[in-house]
Design a protein around this nucleic acid. Structure first.
Lengths: 167, 167
DNA sequence: TGTTTATATTATGGTGCCTAATTAAATAGA
DNA sequence: TCTATTTAATTAGGCACCATAATATAAACA
């Protein structure tokens, strides 16, 4: 999460370039602006979810479970799909279970495993949150025309595909 | 930070739309793709900074200090510029001071205040990190042509200006 | 002078991650 | 069959990043 409310001014960028010759001022400025925008958008999502008593971590767990036909998944599977360790999943599940949104069920075919299933309360939480999420996301994304949106996503995709350049 | 390595499939979006009629599938899909890209880019920055023993929090603090003519700022000022509380700044300063990258100096004009100043070691840390940061950010951003970059930033700016639609 | 305001810190806690060690169960191989 | 390995999940412990509330101190104001 970017920690700079104040984007660099032309003056501070000049100073930067003076100390570090060869700086591509435009690249730096654009990069920071991009991060700033991303952080603002993510924060707006946080606020939306907070209205429904959720946080991004819990929210994405619920979304992953909802994607499953039987509303059920395993910690290992969730870890893979979320890109975090299984130990981290344990924590998320603990929180969601405490709130009654999911339950741990023993896997009948393998006693090492658990099945994490969305409860009725969990589904209700989604039913309460998702219409709001849908309409707000729609409203936001509609502030861009279709061609601009496509172009933006294509550009972001290009950047992501070139992230090895940051290595 | 987005927790979905796996973006929604066409099938899961269909299912979503079936349960929540009126869903703008494109809006949701685009929104999640955008967050995914943002998270990936931010993570790439984390990795770059980690090579130099830094993390985003500490890094942006150092950058804010470097912007000042005398390499000096106050906790209140840093808090405002970073968009976090003063209590949070105390923690960042503690860490940076422990590593010798900044020092707390009493403000001669107001005994409630401290001046946070970048030390020689702090400046050296920046001198070691920034050339790498510059070249990597330049390389990444150069994967987009200038018009695409401008368009992308304009689109992101439009979204940020319309974030009140998420309220 | 006495009250209000401003500065910074401490105390405390929540969220989101991690690694390493552990427990338990399944599986593969001699 | 029995042992060794692998797999699943958790626990323990810790770090980073943030917040709120309470506190101590000092400045400003009326």
């Amino acid at each position: 999460m970017l920690l700079l409310k104040e984007l660099p001014t032309a003056k501070s960028l000049e100073k930067f370039a003076a100390r570090y010759p060869g700086t591509n001022v435009r690249a730096i400025s654009d990069f920071v602006s991009m991060l700033r925008a991303c952080a603002d958008i993510s924060q707006a999502l946080d606020r939306l979810l907070a209205k429904h008593g959720l946080l991004q971590g819990r929210w994405w767990m619920l979304v992953l479970l909802m994607r499953q036909d039987d509303l059920t998944s395993s910690p290992t599977d969730l870890a893979a799909k979320a890109g975090v360790t299984k130990a981290s999943i344990t924590g998320f599940i603990d929180g969601l279970e405490r709130e009654g949104l999911v339950i741990r069920l023993p896997d009948p075919t393998d006693r090492r495993k658990y099945l994490i299933r969305l409860t009725a309360a969990g589904l209700q939480k989604l039913d309460e949150t998702i219409p709001d999420y849908n309409s707000k996301v729609d409203a936001l994304m509609s502030s861009l025309g279709e061609p601009e949106r496509d172009e933006m996503l294509r550009s972001l995709k290009t950047l992501v595909e070139n992230l090895e350049l940051m290595r």
